[in-house]
Design a protein around this nucleic acid. Structure first.
Lengths: 230, 230
DNA sequence: TAGATTGTTAATCGATTAACAATC
DNA sequence: TAGATTGTTAATCGATTAACAATC
């Protein structure tokens, strides 16, 4: 636990060599497994045991964690509570980010009712749309607001994350608008490829269509492989 | 266009050296860009021009495509229509896969109304649930069926893909059940980590929570970086 | 102290990029 | 033929794994 040059609230060490996206993409998974271990009341865990649980190598776990500091103790392993706290910090769970959903269609509504946000320290505060027939309606406890008054709302309420669930053609315009308002995170479900150069915010895209396609590829492949064996 | 050892309907060459997941994950993106070029009436495109469009290197495009065969022509580039057809074939768009959604909650319903499936040659045929109050209801043109009668339905209708949008605790049981029925593809939105050893199907998981977390990480990082510079 | 397990360096493996001969 | 652009080999870069000294 030699806790290196720690950077205040973020839990992310200074200037340090860039952490690869491969590592970053694995962090949420560590977070989930540690949360579960904590829930089970486990006090400590070794990289070896965690590796069996998660089906990854123990070395990878140690390497990954060491990008952010020495959280373990030789001969002991990792203190579950401490490590969970550290990873939460690194992932910004402590920041209490606030999000709004833009596009109160079927998908936006379903997101508004999910526990995704709450479980990760993100607070959903409002839903926006432009259709007169939905504005003013209450959905899952959120009053749908007029998207034309977005700037107004953001001036009065802190908003960190904009969730894009509107029609694809409007995605890039809205992303630029959110970025201009000063919303620093964009969670993009529209499938649009946002031109990052024009957007001064962090963008995370979930491309469901691409996901479905890779599923189809692998099914197609599996099928053609079995055909071959006969 | 030296079209190598082509394997019937799948478009995936024989035994060939394993294609890496990195390549596979990029295929849907090529598919989308080519579809757009085709829509625009473009007849041909070079790897150089496509690389500018997609913000990847031309070499990577050529390497990726050559995992599946030589689709281009020296001095000319790629025929858009032909390449699109080939990639569609590789991705199994031609197979006409049929899907069902299991879990007619908010998220399942929103998926049932999306164009995701249709646009990729996948046909959605039914929604299932266990709640008596939704069974029999019509949602987006689909009559919600009783999940207890899943086996019965699958015996009478070809089903290739099961989309899991039910509560997480039921995910792994349902996945095993689908696999047993012979459904070869599982599209998992529950966030559950399905034990692949026990499942004889291809599994594709979309973990939205993990995606949100990586967004938060990068926001947290950006924030701590700017703090540092002052 | 002896045993366990980390943190870290070095070795391996895999993926991306550069370069260019082949060829349309 | 000359020009363009692919397919492919070789070089580089990055990520994962193995090994082990440090240390609790």
């Amino acid at each position: 636990m030699n806790g290196n040059n720690d950077s205040g609230r973020s839990g992310i060490p200074d200037g340090a060599e860039k952490v690869s996206t491969a590592v970053i993409r694995r962090l949420p998974r560590y977070f989930r497994y540690l949360r579960e271990l904590l829930r089970q009341g486990r006090l400590r865990i070794s990289s070896g045991e965690l590796s069996k649980l998660m089906h990854v190598t123990a070395t990878q776990i140690r390497q990954d964690l060491n990008c952010f500091g020495g959280f373990g103790q030789q001969g002991y392993g990792y203190n579950v509570k401490y490590l969970y706290a550290k990873i939460s910090e690194i992932l910004g769970v402590e920041r209490g980010y606030r999000a709004i959903i833009i596009g109160a269609g079927n998908f936006g509504r379903s997101l508004s009712s999910s526990t995704l946000f709450d479980h990760r320290g993100v607070k959903l505060t409002a839903l926006f749309d432009i259709a007169p027939e939905v504005i003013g309606k209450t959905i899952n406890g959120f009053c749908v607001l007029d998207a034309r008054k977005l700037e107004e709302y953001c001036a009065q309420n802190r908003v960190d994350i904009g969730v894009l669930t509107l029609p694809r053609p409007e995605a890039s315009g809205m992303a630029a608008r959110l970025s201009k308002i000063g919303i620093r995170g964009i969670w993009n479900f529209t499938g649009a490829e946002l031109e990052l150069e024009k957007i001064n915010s962090v963008v995370e895209t979930v491309h469901m269509g691409d996901s479905l396609m890779t599923l189809c590829y692998r099914m197609n492949k599996a099928e053609s492989d079995t055909d071959k064996k006969q």
